[in-house]
Structures are given as C-alpha cells and as structure tokens.
Design a protein around this nucleic acid. Structure first.
Length: 934
RNA sequence: GCUCAGAUGGUGGAACUGGUAGACACGCAGGACUUAAAAUCCUGUGCCCUCAACAGGCGUGCGGGUUCGAUUCCCGCUCUGAGUACCA
C-alpha cells in the first residue's frame, strides 16, 4: 500500500491513548529525565502553526531519551486562568469556566492530532479547584513565613515570634518593611494581639501594603511592572495610571541575591540570564548622609538627606545634590525666594508624560531649592537642587552630583554653572566631558589624596560608618511583586479580614472556591467583581479578600504538580519530588524571561527553604524556541486614473506599471506565492467577477512578514496541514524550517519536500507494487556505512538541539539507501528507531510490519554507533594552490607527507595547474587537505 | 544610548575544533510518462565571461589584519532583529 498517513496516524494515536504508552511512573530502575513545555493559555483562537514548534522539539527529545533508556516525564496542562476568558464573560455573560473548558477541548484535539507523547494522566489546569487549592496553600505558607538574613533563608513565622519573645527586635535580621518598630521583649509582651499582627505583617513574605500601583481603568485591574509598556497595558494597549491602593505583595526582594547567584549555576540562554540580571539590577555602593544646613528661616525637615552612590570614592568631587521632584521633602526644603521657581519646575515635570521624559534625555532641566547641604567628608556647603533625571522610585530618590566623573552630572553642572572639580590625576579633558575612570590617584580629595580606587572605597566606607554618616550598601532595582488583581477569573486569595486585619482561612477550608457572581464587572462602588458574590462569607465573621491572584501565581509551581498531579493530600508527595527533583529541559518562549521564569525561581527557592523541595533551581536547562511570524500574501487591485478601484488585479511583478492598492489575501488559497484564481473568486463575493493581469500565465502574490493574526489572513492552521500531509510531515517540516531558537516567518513552501521524503522512506520497505518487502541478507559495507553515519549524526544533533540538520541528514540517508536498493531488515529496523522521535506514526506502523509487537517502538533501544563502519582507507584529497581548490586526488589514508608529495608532483593534471612554476611549500593535513604554495 | 543576537544563491538553510562554501529542501529550467493535466521520475541550477567547457574571473554585509589556508579568529564600520533605558 502507498503511504496512507491518515489511517496510520489515527491508528497509532488511538493505540497510544488506549495503552497509555507514555504514562510515566514516579519510580524506576532507569535514570529519570524531566522534559517540560511552557503550558499554554487556552485561547479561543486555537493553535496556529507557531505554537507547536517548541512542543515538537521537546517531544522529539523526550522520545529520544526514552529510546536511550531514560524514565521520561513529559507532561502537559493549561494555564487556564486569564483575562481573555473574563473579557469574553463580560461581553457575553458566559461563565469563564465554560469558555475555558471549550477552548481546552479544542487545544486537546489539536495537540492529539500532532502525536505528542505527553503523559495526559498528569494533566493540570490552574483554574481547577483541585489545583488552585495548592496555589492557595503555597500563599498561606508565604504568609506564615519571614526571611531570616542570618540563615539566608525563609523560616516559619513562629521562629520570629520566639525571637521577639526572647530578645525583641535586637537579634532580628530580617527582610521587612522600612517602618518596623524596635522593641524589647517586655514591650512585645504588652502588645495587644492586634498590634502583634500589625507588626508581624511587616515581616511576612506575602504582606499588605499601601503601594502605588499601575492601575488600568479600562481593564479594571492592577498590572505588574512587566505588564506595562511605555505607560500602556501590554495586553490590549490601554492607558495605565498610578494609583495608591492596599495591595498584597510578595517579598521577592528577599531573594534578589540568591536569584542573581543562581543564574551562574543554570544552563540557560545568555540573553535570558542577562535580562534577569538587569531586572534584579544589583548595584554595590554606599549610602551617604548629607546634613541639611538649617537656614535662618528655620527650614528643616530632618537632619540629613541620604543618597545612594556607586562611586563613594568621588565624594570629594560633589558640587551639588539633587532630589527627585516628587521627593516628599521638596516643599519643606525650598526657601521662600526659590518657591516660585521650584513650583514652576514641578508643574513642568508633571506635564511631561512618561514618554516625553524618556524620549527627551538630552535636555538638562532642574531648579535650585535655595537650601544647602554639608558634604560629610569635606564639610563643604553644596546646593540642593531638584531635577527630573532623578527618579523617586530608585534608591533614596536623591543623588549626589559629581560632574567630573559622570556625564549626566557634567551636563547638569555645565548648564547651571556649578563647579567641576577634578578628583583623580588620571582624569582627562574634563572641561569637554566627564571622565568616569577609576584609574590613578586621588587629588583635591582631602584625606584620600594619593590613594587608589579600592583603598579609597574601603577607607571611606569605614570612615563614614564610624561617624554615622553612611555605610557600604547594596541596592536593587527590583521591587516587591504586587500580588493581587481586581478581577474575577483567578485564584481567590485565602484570606479574610476582621477588624481591618487579614487572617488566613483554615487549611481545612481549602480550596477556597471562586464564588458565582451575576456579572463579571467591578461593583458600582468600584470594588472588585468578587464583591458581587452573595453569602460568600467566612465563618468567623468579617469578609473575604476580594482580589484574586495574578496570572503568574498558578504557573509559579506547576512543574511540581506534574510530579504527582492527582495527590489530594499534598501539592506533591515527598517521594515524587525526591524522584523527579527538577526539570532537566524546559522549552518555551523568551517573552517569559522576567515574568514567569523569575517568579518560578522565587517560589521554588521558598519551597526549598521550607523543606518541601530539594532543588535551589527549578529548571536546569532552558531553551527558547524562536517566534514564528506570519507571512502575508497580497493581491494588487488596479485603480483607475481617479484612484477609483477597478475589478482587475495585477500580478506582483507587473504592478509597477499600474496604480494599485495592496490587499491581504488568505494565505491558504495561495501556493508558493501563486494565487489559486478559482479559490480567490470563491473566497469573497466581491472577487467573484475579478479579472487578472497575469505574468507567465500565473498570478504571483506579494509577500510581507508580519505578526500572525486573523486580520492579516496569514494564519496557518496545523489542522489543515495535517489533513493534507499528516502529522509526521508537519512535525518534520516544523523542525526542517531552521534552527529551533531562531525566529522566522512561517512559509509552507517546501513542506512537499518533507512529505516526499516520508513517502520515499515508506517505499524503502516496499516493492514496486507497494507490497511490504524486506530481506534478511547480510548488510553490505555501504549500507552499514550509511546507517552508522546517520546514527551518529542524529544523536549528535539531538544532543545539541539541532533538529533541522538531522532532518536533512535523514533525507541524505534515505537517498543513499534508495540508491543502494537497500531492503535489508537489519538496516531498516534501525532506521525506524532513529527516525521515530521525529515521525512516530509512520515508524510505529513500519515497526509493526517488520514483525515487532505493536507499540514497543517507543521503548526500543537506540542503535549503538560503531565507528568502525565509517573507517575509510582512501580519501579524495582536495588539492589547492595558494588556498584555491583546484582538483581532487584519491590517496590512501596510510600515506604520509613525503609519499603524498611525490605522487602529487608526478601527477599530470596537477602539473597543468602549476604552469611551470615550482612549488615553494606543500602543506599536508592527513585526511583533510593538500595545499601547495607557489 | 547600552546589552545581546544576527547578515551565506531566487527562497529556507548547511558547513560542529581554521581545511573542498552553498549539503538538504523549495523554486526555476529542460526532459520522460500522458490525448492533456495532475502526480511521479530523470537532468541541470551561486554569479560573471563564454557556443561550450573537466578554461578563466568573482563570491559568505563592508574595510582591514593574522594564517600555507578565514563563513569560522582579531580590529574597525554598516545594516537588521530582540531586550532595556536618565538606576545615581
């Protein structure tokens, strides 16, 4: 029979499902291997051809690892809480759970068609109560924990209470809010329960705090920093404004250093690590206090202004101090004479939008407050300014200006005529621009004159600390993550409020179910949708928290749930966690670099601190698959002289001769950029009577690379391709397209080549009449060579995730075996095994035809590479003259340079190239090349 | 601005440690089969010069360098894509 992909694929997909072929056991004699895909949000649009790219790669890897004798965990699930289902609910009244369920069914059908070897018995859905029960449980652990800096890990809150009881705050080194109280054990004892709770909340790893949040009125919710782009929401592009709100936060900053250090231990793409490093933004420096000079009018808020600097060594070069315009002391520190100027300036900065402020980094602006501060090291008075280049949200919102060493300070000083003092003898041309060098010895720098950088920093930090004027300090850009959304379709936060204080619900009450509501909108009074729930009340009185968890909650621990997905007593059993440990290979998009991947590492470290898990890092190796862009096709409608559209469409090559408008055309009625005219006429009514100006008898469409989207008619659906070519062809073609990590436009041109390859492979096992036919003769040397070449090649390729090159190699191998007329069972059976990770259906069928038990292919043994079959005794040496390849010379590989030289010089053909000239030197590299220098 | 990735035929791409650039596939051209088309098969296909060539020249973004030899290493530049942005 000819290659009947449809029957074959259906047969084996059913077989795998019926026999649970890929069910993984959480114990085995075999070594374990955990392959994870980033689970999808099940959107209403279904899968397009770009989505499965990473899944195919991970599936090939999983199948390969099984053949290599590993016990492989390769699960799949759905990140099923999210905004689109809720937006749809708002519009239609349809419960998001129903929409989600339907979308998941579509996803599942599409995924099944591609023949993935997922263990579906471990499927998770973040929106299922059986799953989010444990997301809530982890939240409760965070609430019940604090970060002990001494032990550098999270601990149960009871250890903090013990410390308070024993010695008050004296011994406590914690990551906590800034406004914590200092108290003695005797004070603690006198606190009311309420006071104690208020104080403890300042230490908990998830805590409430009034924070300025990114409020998006259009979405009716708060967004995380990474969900906001240039003042607009990443999803939907709605304006975002700043608003103060009581919010749940996660103390991720406690883990900043460990998150940074961990990056050095994991095999991730360098750009993702770099993005996380930048996001965390660690800077080592010092905080320094500048005393405020009390003016005659008695202005004074505090004794000091504290600045953060990474160049404390330049402190003698300070010629002014700057506060952010939003700094809370600005009004109090402004003298009456400067009041007008300062207020005008603040008004000006307020008018500037985020965008203006970013675009315009060149213009220098600022205003003098009239106040002076005292440089702690030199005792010098310097002016206190405000300027919008200082950000209120970073460091202390105050900066010391050192014009000789910092270009931005230099511009500021030059513009406002402030002094520029050289502080290092190695600084050059500081009258033209700043020189940030750390070289040389200090000058004009008081007691550090003559010192070098390292010495000066250490000395100054000490000096400042002894006098209480400053100290060494590490600053992070990263801030605590806000953990609440004013939305319906998310995990309820397992907290209730009584007398204004938050309390956890009892563990037995979990899961705290999402209540039914009549409308999925905020209430008229602006409360979140959950406020609409009737009779949704905690049994101790009070009311439940009305926010739900953000999108990243459910995905921050899901890889553990897969280890033991159906466990009702724990998020995963200790045995399962001990066995599977961490994800060995994680494949997904780089868009999650600073979101999901950072939060997951945070929760992972937390769970480890509490002893529930073992691994400091959850994802050992990460691969980012490239984005598949759309490739749009266009037709060109001819316009008449008045620019009015006609009914005529001109082929792309001829369009310059006419006035035309380019119109998107459905890529599914275009093949190799040639338009199917009949389908085009049938596509839309307005084209029914279209006329065409053809080139070479064809209508050629224009091409452009854009995002894949419905409105551009460039969405290619895997279902259509599977219908036409089968899943095995789709799988191989997606890999054949190019390197996995590279982004590229989808182009169906070329899929025929892969389909032809599979037919050719099928034909190897059949005779002219398409009857299955193999023989049992002893394989020839040439056949063995072709086989072992591909065994080695594919193995090497898979290990380095170069799937595109192995597809080519398969083609070469099958071409070779076809030329050799190979019908040898031994050879072909090994071919079936090595191709099976890529094209599992056809291989299962052939495996069975070869007489093996159905379905045993998935756990067959990968053939062993034997280098002796590749050993050659002759090699066609390329002979080049002055590096230019001229001819090939067949020589025995046993020959050494002297013999080779004499044979070469005796060669007539070679002599022709020499053209009478004498060779100066002959380079001979055994098995590689002969190069003659003339 | 900074960081990272990349630039190879008409197209997707290959060349893994400095050793025959363009594998494999698409497309295109020619041929076989067919009444014809589709499908299938065969042949050719980097560019230029040439009737043609197992003749010559050019050729991996551009300009230099190291080397017997560079797509690969080094220096400088251009362009494209991604991320990030007054971070003190």
């Amino acid at each position: 029979m000819d290659y009947q992909f449809k029957e074959i694929e259906q047969k084996w997909q059913k077989f795998w499902a019926d026999h649970q072929t890929f069910k993984a056991e959480s114990n085995s004699e075999k070594p374990k291997y955990y392959v994870l895909d980033m689970f999808p949000y099940p959107s209403g649009a279904g899968l397009h051809v770009g989505h499965p790219l990473g899944y195919i790669a991970s599936d090939i890897f999983s199948r390969y690892k099984r053949l290599k004798g590993f016990n492989v965990l390769h699960p799949m699930g759905y990140d099923s809480f999210g905004l689109p289902a809720e937006q749809y609910a708002i519009q239609t009244g349809q419960h998001p759970a129903i929409t989600t369920e339907a979308n998941i069914a579509t996803y599942r059908r599409q995924l099944d068609q591609i023949g993935f070897s997922f263990d579906w018995s471990r499927e998770v859905r973040t929106s299922e109560p059986s799953y989010y029960k444990w997301t809530q449980w982890i939240f409760m652990q965070l609430f019940n924990s604090w970060y002990n800096i001494e032990n550098d890990r999270a601990e149960d809150i009871t250890t903090l209470i013990e410390k308070f009881n024993a010695s008050g705050t004296a011994d406590v080194k914690a990551v906590c809010d800034e406004d914590v109280k200092s108290f003695l054990p005797s004070d603690w004892a006198t606190f009311t329960d309420e006071e104690k709770q208020i104080e403890l909340l300042k230490y908990r790893l998830t805590y409430l705090r009034e924070s300025t949040v990114n409020w998006c009125p259009a979405l009716g919710t708060v967004l995380a920093n990474d969900e906001v782009k240039d003042g607009f929401s990443e999803r939907g592009g709605f304006p975002v404004e700043q608003k103060k709100m009581m919010q749940w936060s996660m103390r991720i900053t406690a883990y900043a250093d460990r998150l940074l250090q961990g990056l050095d231990t994991i095999d991730w793409p360098e750009p993702v690590k770099e993005m996380q490093r930048n996001w965390i933004g660690k800077s080592v420096g010092a905080s320094v206090k500048f005393k405020i000079e009390t003016s005659d009018s008695g202005l004074r808020t505090s004794d000091y202004i504290e600045v953060f600097t990474t160049r404390v060594d330049t402190i003698f070069g300070v010629s002014y101090l700057v506060l952010a315009p939003e700094h809370e002391w600005v009004a109090e520190l402004t003298t009456p004479e400067q009041k007008q100027a300062v207020e005008d300036y603040i008004a000006l900065t307020k008018k500037k939008s985020e965008l203006d402020r970013m675009a315009d980094t060149k213009t220098v602006s600022g205003a003098f407050t009239g106040t002076y501060v005292i440089n702690p090291v030199s005792g010098e008075r310097v002016q206190l300014w405000i300027a919008d280049y200082v950000l209120a949200g970073y460091g202390t919102g105050a900066v010391m200006g050192v014009p000789s060493g910092d270009q931005r300070d230099w511009l500021f000083a030059t513009h406002f005529n402030l002094p520029i003092v050289q502080i290092l003898d190695a600084q050059k041309d500081i009258d033209v621009q700043a020189d940030p060098t750390k070289e040389g010895k200090y000058i004009n720098s008081g007691f550090i004159n003559g010192m070098e950088y390292k010495e000066a920093v250490a000395f100054l930090n000490n000096w400042l600390e002894e006098r209480g004027a400053g100290k060494a300090k590490v600053n992070f850009r990263q801030r605590d993550a806000i953990f609440g959304r004013q939305r319906y379709w998310g995990e309820p936060i397992p907290v209730y409020f009584k007398d204004g204080l938050p309390y956890l619900v009892q563990e037995e009450e979990l899961p705290l179910l999402l209540p039914e509501i009549d409308k999925y909108l905020p209430t008229e009074t602006g409360e979140p949708p959950l406020a609409r729930a009737e009779n949704w009340l905690p049994k101790d009185g009070g009311h439940y928290e009305l926010s739900t968890m953000p999108g990243w909650a459910g995905s921050s621990w899901y890889w553990y749930r897969y280890m033991d997905a159906n466990n009702n007593n724990e998020f995963a059993s200790k045995e399962a966690i001990d066995y599977w440990q961490a994800v060995d290979l994680y494949i997904g998009g780089s868009e999650h670099a600073t979101g999901h991947l950072l939060y997951s590492r945070f929760w992972n470290k937390f769970l480890k601190d509490l002893g529930y898990t073992k691994e400091e890092e959850p994802f050992k190796k990460l691969i980012n698959q490239g984005m598949i862009q759309g490739r749009s096709n266009f037709v060109y409608r001819v316009n008449d002289e008045n620019g009015k559209p006609t009914n005529t469409y001109v082929s792309a090559g001829l369009r310059k001769e006419y006035k035309t408008s380019a119109l998107h055309v459905d890529v599914n009625i275009v093949e190799n950029d040639t338009l199917d005219l009949a389908k085009f006429k049938a596509w839309r009514e307005e084209y029914a009577n279209a006329e065409f100006i053809l080139e070479g008898g064809k209508y050629i469409c224009g091409v452009e690379v854009e995002k894949m989207s419905k409105s551009k008619f460039n969405v290619v659906n895997p279902d259509d391709l599977i219908e036409r070519y089968g899943a095995d062809t789709l799988r191989m073609y997606e890999m054949f397209l190019g390197p996995l990590e590279q982004s590229k436009p989808w182009n169906t041109n070329g899929i025929e080549g892969v389909f032809k390859f599979l037919r050719k492979f099928w034909r190897l096992f059949h005779n002219e009449e398409w009857v299955f036919h193999v023989n049992d003769v002893v394989p020839t040397k040439a056949e063995l060579k072709a086989l072992h070449k591909i065994i080695k090649k594919v193995q090497d390729d898979i290990e380095r995730f170069s799937f595109n090159t192995s597809v080519s190699s398969f083609m070469i191998a099958v071409n070779e075996l076809t030329d050799l007329k190979c019908k040898n069972r031994q050879i072909l059976e090994d071919m079936v095994i090595i191709l099976s990770p890529y094209a599992p259906h056809i291989c299962e069928e052939l495996w069975q035809l070869l007489g093996n038990d159905a379905g045993t292919l998935s756990y067959a043994a990968y053939p062993t590479f034997k280098p002796e079959y590749l050993v050659e005794d002759e090699f066609a040496y390329p002979v080049s003259i002055n590096g230019k390849m001229k001819m090939n010379l067949n020589l025995s590989l046993t020959l050494a340079q002297p013999e080779v030289e004499s044979i070469l010089l005796a060669d007539e053909h070679f002599q022709k190239f020499l053209d009478g000239k004498a060779p100066k030197k002959i380079i001979f590299v055994k098995g590689k090349i002969i190069n003659v220098v003339v």
